[in-house]
Each structure stands twice: as structure tokens, then as C-alpha cells.
């Protein structure tokens, strides 16, 4: 008994890893927008325009300094751009990205903050235009129930499993 259990656990763990290893290459191929390009993005076949060359310089300091009126405003800006996705990048938030579109949207977020709009309004502004995709934290909706409830379900499942094993071992003693 004491010998069989770890082996069983090892086998289950190994199959999980194997399943993911098999499926991840297939998943990785899905690209949100095949063939599109954002301004300033490097493209080997095309001649770089003066604009692209000009933007290479701005790569050194990706995030432009902004004249915030208060520390609170700075923090709100940081939080908002940190949880909004840069739509043209691979897994970068708005706050991290050097893409020109990300900079445009950052400026938009900044000017909305200056106008005194709430975080909720700013997030809605983005969702209205780019969909839930821009939110790193997906909203709680019918199609995201499993996503939000999944960890809880796994925890409950794990606890039940653990209780079961403990009970069995107690009996074996």
C-alpha cells in the first residue's frame, strides 16, 4: 500500500504533463489576428518608413513621463494600464508595451483620467471598443463561470480525495 500510492501519484502527474506537452504546440499556433500589422512593427519585407525609424529611438524609454496631478492619479494610471492588455502584442500589458498603438491608448487613458472619469468608465471605454479581450482579469459571466469557479472545484475535489486517502490509511494501520 505505502509503496503503490506514490507510484500512482507519479503516473497521474506524468500523464498531466504529457497531455499538456501534446496540446500546447497546437494551441500556440492560434494567432488573434493573422496578417495584420501595427504601425512601427518590424516587418522584414517592407522598407522601413521614416516614421518607423523615428520610433526606434523611443524604444529606449518605452513609457513616456506624464504630468500627473497627484500620486493617486499616478497609481490609478499604473493600475489601469497594468490590467489592460496591449491588443497588438504577445502577452504584454499597456503599461509595458512599446507598440505605438499601446502608446496611443495610454495617452487616451491618461486624458480620460485628467477629465475625471472613473476607473469603471475607462475600463468600459476599452471593452466597448476591443471586447473582453483587453481585460487581463476576465469579467464574471456565464461563459467564465468555470474559469472563476474551477480552482474552488479543484480544491474541494482535492480535499475529498485527501479525506478518502487518510481514511483508508487509518483503516490499514
Amino acid at each position: 500500500m505505502s509503496h503503490r500510492l506514490p507510484q500512482f501519484a507519479r503516473a497521474t502527474g506524468a500523464s498531466l504533463v504529457l497531455a499538456f506537452a501534446l496540446i500546447i504546440p497546437v494551441w500556440a499556433q492560434s494567432d488573434p489576428a493573422p496578417g495584420t500589422q501595427s504601425p512601427g512593427q518590424q516587418q522584414p519585407d517592407s522598407a522601413a518608413s521614416p516614421m518607423q525609424r523615428g520610433q526606434m529611438g523611443s524604444m529606449v524609454s518605452p513609457i513616456e513621463p506624464l504630468p500627473f496631478r497627484s500620486d493617486l492619479e499616478r497609481q490609478r494610471f499604473k493600475a489601469l494600464t497594468g490590467e489592460l492588455r496591449c491588443t497588438v502584442c504577445q502577452n504584454e500589458s499597456l503599461s509595458e508595451s512599446t507598440a505605438p498603438l499601446a502608446r496611443d491608448i495610454r495617452m487616451e487613458v491618461f486624458s480620460m483620467l485628467q477629465e475625471g472619469r472613473s476607473d469603471f468608465e475607462i475600463r468600459n471605454f476599452m471593452v466597448d471598443r476591443y471586447g473582453d479581450f483587453v481585460l487581463y482579469r476576465p469579467p464574471l459571466a456565464s461563459h467564465t463561470i468555470l474559469l472563476w469557479g474551477g480552482p474552488l472545484l479543484l480544491l474541494i475535489g482535492g480535499l475529498i480525495g485527501a479525506l478518502f486517502v487518510i481514511k483508508k490509511r487509518r483503516q490499514a494501520l
Binding site: 489576428a33 495584420t36 501595427s38 504601425p39 497588438v88 498603438l101 496611443d104 471598443r129 476591443y130 471586447g131
Partner: peptide
């Protein structure tokens, strides 16, 4: 372009 939700050309 932001109002149009454009993210790539």
C-alpha cells in the same frame, strides 16, 4: 482608430 477598435492594419 481607438474609437474604431482598430488594432492592426
Amino acid at each position: 482608430a481607438i474609437d474604431l477598435g482598430v488594432y492592426g492594419a
